[in-house]
Write a protein that binds this DNA or RNA. Structure first.
Lengths: 114, 114
DNA sequence: CAGGATCCACGCTGATACTG
DNA sequence: CAGTATCAGCGTGGATCCTG
């Protein structure tokens, strides 16, 4: 596979490129949390354990910039903001599911019990 | 998803666990390079562009320890060593393919041309 | 073919404080 | 409620250079 550049970063393969969109500790949990439809910031935070405001915000901003989520703010009080998946992000869900299944398979092999 | 520990490391999800086995810059390229069967060290290095001896060795050791590859040394001269995928690693290939496809999809959307 | 010695950047974390 | 701002620290992956 030939390597390529994007926004001045070098990638060795499409896999590496994909990981830029869904990799890291928090992006997949966020995408999964949004799978059923738009979710408010507060609910998002509640549904993703261990995440801090800081990480949630930075990851949401990053995902927005990558066109993986859309942000909608409503002029209400109290203020309401929700996030939703874009089409390209929805296509990532099956990949995440596959990764999840493979992880579960490995855990079983390693005899990890929850 | 409840979190869990393995070898004294904390994981938040099976996905994170899976990434420990196939994540990082080099593990997937290595696994893919071994997909058709055992490959010798030298050929492995030739087929994976940009990789250094250091990284190749470290990652192979790590994969061995995780039971993802097996190492076989032959008492010949010149010495010969080859590496092969284990069953659990073969099961990762479809996941890697899915990731690859998703990456290619994103690249197309971003209009990246090789 | 295998590795030691450095070194650095990056991703993530933690603490704390503040805002319309 | 839904963030913003900032400073510090840490572990790890990876790069570079060198050796046998």
């Amino acid at each position: 596979m030939k390597d390529f550049r994007h926004q001045n970063r070098l990638y060795y393969s499409p896999v590496e490129f994909a990981m830029n969109y869904i990799g890291g500790t928090w992006k997949m949990p966020i995408l999964v949390a949004l799978r059923e439809g738009p979710v408010r910031y507060g609910d998002l935070k509640k549904s993703i354990s261990h995440i801090t405001d800081k990480m949630l915000i930075t990851q949401l901003r990053d995902l927005e910039e990558k066109n993986m989520v859309t942000r909608k703010a409503y002029a209400e009080k109290p203020p309401r903001v929700d996030y939703a998946l874009t089409e390209r992000a929805k296509q990532a869900l099956s990949v995440i599911d596959a990764l999840h299944a493979y992880g579960a398979f490995l855990m079983k092999e390693e005899e990890i019990t929850l």
